[in-house]
Amino acid sequence: MSTGAKKRIMREYNECTADTPAGMKINFDEQNMTEWEILLDGPDQSIYAGGHFKLKMTFPTEYPFKPPVVSFKTKIYHPNVSNDDKGSMCLGMLRADEWKPPNKVVAVLRLIQALLIEPNADDAIEPSIANEYKENRKEFEKNAKDWVKRYAK
């Protein structure tokens, strides 16, 4: 990783700590600055309220010319998070072809939070969950809350 990229990550981190979105905590290790651990509380107005989610944000070697990779370490029932051991979230600005080098990490954090409040079923990674979200919202909410209780307490 180039020194420019490291400088950029450092600056992004400083900006994030100065302006951390509510309900979020970033664990930053200067020895391994390309992997951030993010602790995220389910937003109050969302069905994930009360849950505590652990996320990992990984900065690729090519950062900022490639997007950071976001993955949920805590299982979550969500159309935009893959239902596997990776728990990857890849949409919008996190997609390689939509990522812009000037994008800020704090904007990524806000995107994650916004997606918990309102999933994007049209750009889903889990089509069956997305379907359920669109067609049987009750069932979806029940399942999501169920998972929060099971995995995210």
Partner: peptide, 23 residues
């Protein structure tokens, strides 16, 4: 380039889309 706009709910298409995005 692949447009994210027309992602159908059809699982197979979504899969193809994903593959093409990652290609």
């Amino acid at each position: 380039m692949s447009g994210p706009a027309y992602m159908p709910s059809d699982e197979e298409l979504a899969n193809l889309q994903k593959l093409s995005n990652e290609y």
